[in-house]
């Protein structure tokens, strides 16, 4: 079923009809499915495999007003060598003004530099500012751009505005990959999550991402489940694969593994690589390292044995 979806965005009415024509999401059922998958018991060899996979999928993130070049350099060092034999993470994610620092620190390592842009986290600025925010971050060396959508426009039904902004930002990205943050905590309903996912994919998103991390709830399991269903169905319909990045609130190895189980049993194998699935997180990495150590040695080491960068 590779239908062309080219005409879907030909007008506000067509776009609206398409998005509202998507099958609904039953909240009770979706919550139940996510909760059931959360009971999967991942032990021994499977756990070891999952921990290393999760580490390799981490977008190691710092998005604070207090961030400095020193802080970012330290984080980049950790991204390359998280500790022990653990693999490198997928990317580091910083504000646009620190992209150059990160790019310099990560040169030649293969680790991507991701930057939030477009008036992150609220997105309440003009399209001109969003586009140049994006272009400047790319020029400074960002490989990936994490943009936010205009939730106000989405919630008031102006889907075309959201669509056109994504298209414009995607154009400004050039060769950089575009992750579109839906901020699902502000969209509230699962129907909205599904519609926003499709809207972003139609507009050219390379990844869809749950949250900025600045709004709660962030990456809940049911929301990630619905987004995984969306990318799966989108590929069936168009042949194009889009990645998923839950971000915000994923702090423990258990959370990370539950996410991997969701991917495994919803979108499937094809998404189980850092190329197509990322975990946006900061404190998660140390918990993964701690569990990795525990699995290898049989003992828990105290938090002082894990670096804080």
């Amino acid at each position: 079923m590779t239908t062309s979806l080219a005409d879907v965005a030909s007008s506000e009415a067509a776009l609206r009809a398409f998005l509202h024509g998507l099958p609904g999401v039953d909240r009770v059922g979706a919550d139940q499915r996510a909760a059931m998958l959360g009971t999967r018991s991942i032990k021994t060899t499977a756990k070891a495999q999952a921990i290393d996979l999760a580490i390799s999928m981490v977008d190691l993130t710092t998005l604070e007003g207090a961030d400095t070049a020193g802080k970012v350099r330290a984080m980049c060092a950790k991204a390359v060598r998280p500790g022990g034999e653990a693999p490198s993470v997928a990317a580091v994610c910083v504000y646009p003004d620190l992209v150059a620092v990160a790019a310099e620190a990560l040169k030649g390592t293969g680790i991507k530099v991701a930057s939030v842009a477009t008036g992150f986290p609220s997105g309440r600025t003009s399209l001109e500012v969003k586009v140049s925010d994006t272009a400047l971050a790319v020029a400074a060396g960002a490989d990936e751009i994490d943009m936010v959508i205009d939730r106000g426009a989405f919630l008031s039904g102006r889907y075309m505005k959201v669509y056109e902004e994504i298209v414009a930002v995607k154009a400004a990205c050039g060769p950089a990959h575009l992750k579109v943050i839906l901020e699902t905590g502000e969209l509230v309903t699962y129907d909205n999550v599904r519609r926003a996912s499709w809207l972003a994919m139609l507009a050219g998103a390379d990844f869809i991402k749950t949250s900025t991390g600045k709004v709660a709830p962030a990456a809940t399991l049911p929301v990630t489940l619905i987004m995984l269903e969306a990318v799966r169905d989108f590929r069936d319909a168009t042949g194009r694969q889009v990645g998923v990045k839950p971000a915000g609130g994923i702090r423990t190895t258990k959370d990370a593994i539950k996410n991997l189980v969701l991917v495994n049993e919803t979108a499937g194998d094809d998404w189980l690589t850092p190329e197509w699935f990322r975990l946006g997180a900061s404190s998660l990495l140390n918990d993964l390292l701690m569990q990795r150590e525990k699995l290898a040695t049989g003992r828990y080491a105290g938090p002082d044995y894990f670096t804080l960068d």
Binding site: G24, V28, G29, R33, I226
Partner: peptide
């Protein structure tokens, strides 16, 4: 008009 993913479950 059912919620298809949940109907499958």
């Amino acid at each position: 008009d059912a919620a298809l993913d949940q109907a499958v479950e």
